[in-house]
Design a protein around this nucleic acid. Structure first.
Lengths: 341, 341
DNA sequence: GTGAAAGCGCTAACAC
DNA sequence: GTGTTAGCGCTTTCAC
């Protein structure tokens, strides 16, 4: 393994001082373009790459950001996409990503996260749902003056960037779709009551109904918890109703799969007997039978934007807190069909 | 944010030199137990935690290990489990984990990985399948004298630890299960031909057949690629056969889901018309309809063992290369049933 | 067994 | 615009 060049080597080759090299490498002002080029040429020739540890030690910054997520069961696809989006940005700007799965239930979650900081291993954090809606944590971070961005629908009053997806609107459009197929008796399976997204999706559902003059009486709502099992239980309850809903909108794909299973267990064909749709476009949605109509969220892009905001903030380019709202996309597959007479 | 204590603070409080403190913290010999205790007490009182960057800079080690995995489509559950197992060990011994998704197809994959090292950000690597079977990479790592462990069935000739799962045996036991249900005409869907596991699983399948005196003629084998779509295509080919197989063993769950879809598309009930089983116990297997009979691999444990081996190796406790083989577990659900007459 | 001094490779503050 | 001088907090070498 060849020895890695140091900044001194570059300075020597360029015939400049070490500080000038440092300036160029850090994009600081007050460098003549011509000097700059000389430095870059020398660095290129030596295949020089700054030593991260030295840089960290001297600058007291770690160039690492932490990605916090809840590692609850059915989240792996979501998490992988988050990681992917964040990693892409990190790599392109020379940061590292520290992944930090955690559980909202952990009693000393807040302490743990704060300690991550105290140990100076992380410059800033990305909080994803549902952690980003967990008030004790958010409050503690503000108090500790830790830089972070939230991926969350919910507003927050502190000086922090928020990135969100328009769940409300997507749910409304999905409901519009069901109604356009002729369905008017639509069951709804709500997500985990403590996740902000559950309420947004329900709100979108309701606003579509309202716009179509459908009475709330014909739209039974069941409380799920975003898991397959809860979807299955809610599915059974909804399908036992008389009159039976002709369509069921589950707030995520896992619950939608549960609803489909419940339908199968009652020898009800999907979509002929009942249309079912989900939310999230988990990979399983494509492989289900029948393939699931759902909503595709731009998860990678959310992570990308969040990471960019955070790193900009760390670089001081920060400024006032911003709010980004990204759009989801309807994915119509075969689990929804026109109402059969 | 309170200022983090330094090693000097600890030394001062303990009334010892900084070097002695360092010795204790690094578990070096030549320290009197009593001195040791004094140091630990002082460190505890100050809530001291060594500064990672300083330690890295001075020791030229990063205390970071890299987890390399292929980020191919249907792998997210596997990857999350790998990360989880590795993270647990890392945290308990004070290492960090750098995740590095990559694609075998990337032309300069090898260069990229080597560079990870040159830039001194990683002390060692964990290679997971199918990367761990990718010869150009493995060879390059040996040549660069980079410390790594492989998660792979395949043996390798270099001085490196290997952690594997006994796919061969698991496939044999699964086939035994099908035969015990009365099936003798069993279709097999092979995995990606370049993944070592594909061949192991096929071998296990064959050895069971042999043990039961079943002629190879009655067991059609189709070549898949571990994806849902390939499973679906192979499923159609197998189900079009005359006589039709009464059971199909797919080499992973995604392909098994594809086979089930193919069966549905031919109005064939699973398991009454055809039994189907998979491999891996992906979460989707539990949520499928019918729930899928499959093989559960101890992925987290594999990652844990791999991480422990690697870190031991880095600490010099290394020694000769070891080989760990972990056992999988059959998960019998409802997609397999006794042969109906 | 323990300690003193000399860096690791970089950035920060200030001088020029 | 550019260079000089000190550290950052730790590990290492070698002396005691």
């Amino acid at each position: 393994m060849r020895k890695q060049a140091t900044i001194d080597d570059v300075a020597a080759l360029a015939g400049l001082s070490i500080k000038t090299v440092s300036r160029v490498l850090n994009g600081e002002p007050n460098v003549r373009p011509q000097t700059r080029d000389r430095v870059l040429a020398a660095a290129g020739e030596l295949d020089y790459y700054p030593n991260v540890s030295a840089r960290r030690l001297a600058s007291k910054r770690s160039f690492v950001i932490g990605l916090l997520y809840d590692d609850h069961d059915p989240a792996s696809d979501y998490v992988i996409d988050l990681q992917d989006g964040a990693l892409n940005v990190c790599r392109s700007v020379g940061y590292h990503l520290l992944i930090q799965p955690c559980r909202t239930e952990t009693p000393d979650l807040v302490d743990e996260v704060i300690r991550l900081f105290r140990r100076s291993t992380v410059d800033g954090l990305i909080l994803t749902q549902p952690l980003s809606d967990f008030d004790p944590l958010v409050t503690a971070l503000f108090e500790s003056e830790i830089v972070f961005v939230r991926v969350s629908q919910r507003a927050c009053d502190g000086p922090c960037h928020c990135i969100s997806v328009d769940d409300d609107r997507a749910a409304r459009r999905m409901t519009d779709h069901l109604i356009s197929l002729g369905h008017r008796r639509i069951g709804f399976v709500m997500g985990h009551p403590e996740h902000g997204s559950s309420h947004d999706r329900l709100a979108g559902f309701r606003s579509s109904l309202e716009a179509h003059d459908i009475s709330p009486d014909s739209v039974p709502v069941e409380q799920g918890r975003y898991t397959f099992e809860s979807g299955r239980a809610c599915g059974h309850r909804l399908l036992a109703l008389n009159p039976r809903p002709t369509a069921i909108f589950a707030s995520n794909d896992h619950m939608a799969m549960g609803v489909i299973t419940a339908a199968h267990e009652r020898d009800l064909d999907v979509p002929r007997g009942v249309s079912v749709c989900g939310f999230d476009d988990a990979p399983m949605a494509r492989y289900a039978w029948p393939p699931l109509t759902t909503v595709r969220q731009p998860v990678k892009q959310v992570a990308r934007v969040a990471t960019e905001c955070l790193i900009d903030g760390l670089r001081g380019a920060g400024g006032r807190p911003t709010r980004h709202v990204l759009e989801s996309e309807l994915v119509i597959r075969e689990s929804t069909a026109p109402l059969s007479q």
